[in-house]
C-alpha cells in the first residue's frame, strides 16, 4: 500500500482541471517519471508557484470538482511522481477520482464545512497529515494544533488501495 502521510499543499480553488494538473503538451511522454517536474504548471491560483510550493508536499487539500476535464491518468501519475498519493477535497470529477483509486492512490471526499475548517485552521501553516486507512481517519497537525478527521471510502475503493490498483484485482476476479 502507498503512503498517505506527510506535508500538505493547500490549493484554495474549485474546478482545478487536469489540463492545469498536467498540460497536454507533456502527454507525449511515455515515461511516467518525466511528468513529475511539470505538475500544476498551468494552475491559475493567486499566490501559488509550482516551482517553490510543491517540493516536499505529500498530500493535497482542495475544494470542489478537483480533476475535471480530460481523462488523462497522467494527472495522478504526475502527483505520484511527486510523492503525492492523497488528495482531500469536497468533491472530485468522476474519471479523476476513479483513476486515483485505480492507481492505488486515494481521493477522499469530505463535507464542505470540514474542508472550510481545514482551510481556516491549517492553510498557511506547515501542516502534516497522518492517515489511518483501516481506521478511516486523517490526522492534521500544525503548530501544536491537532485535528482527527474521520473519512470513509467504499469497500471496493479500499480493495483497490490494498491491492495497489485495479489491474491485478480485475484480472483475478473477472
Amino acid at each position: 500500500m502507498k503512503s498517505f502521510d506527510g506535508r500538505v499543499l493547500f490549493l484554495d480553488r474549485s474546478d482545478i482541471n487536469t489540463d492545469e494538473i498536467i498540460p497536454a503538451r507533456y502527454l507525449t511522454e511515455i515515461s511516467r517519471d518525466a511528468l513529475a517536474p511539470c505538475l500544476l504548471e498551468d494552475l491559475k491560483l493567486k499566490g501559488f508557484d509550482p516551482a517553490t510550493d510543491i517540493a516536499g508536499k505529500r498530500v493535497i487539500v482542495t475544494r470542489a470538482n478537483f480533476g475535471c476535464g480530460s481523462s488523462r491518468e497522467h494527472a495522478p501519475w504526475a502527483l505520484e511522481g511527486n510523492g503525492i498519493n492523497l488528495v482531500v477535497g469536497e468533491s472530485f470529477a468522476r474519471i479523476f477520482r476513479q483513476n486515483m483509486f485505480n492507481c492505488g492512490m486515494m481521493a477522499v471526499e469530505l463535507p464542505a464545512d470540514t474542508i472550510d475548517r481545514l482551510f481556516s485552521a491549517f492553510a498557511g501553516h506547515a501542516t502534516t497529515v497522518e492517515t489511518n486507512v483501516d481506521g478511516g481517519t486523517i490526522t492534521f497537525s500544525a503548530d501544536g494544533l491537532k485535528e482527527v478527521i474521520p473519512f470513509s471510502i467504499s469497500g471496493f475503493d479500499a480493495n483497490l488501495v490494498t491491492a495497489g490498483g485495479w489491474v491485478e484485482y480485475a484480472d483475478a476476479k473477472f
Binding site: N99, F156, W166
Partner: peptide
C-alpha cells in the same frame, strides 16, 4: 464513457469496466 489509462488497460485485457 471516458476512462483513464488503468480502466482502459483492464478493458483491453478483460473487456470489462466498473461504474457506479
Amino acid at each position: 464513457a471516458g476512462v483513464g489509462t488503468t480502466d482502459l488497460e483492464v478493458g483491453i485485457l478483460k473487456g470489462v469496466c466498473a461504474f457506479k
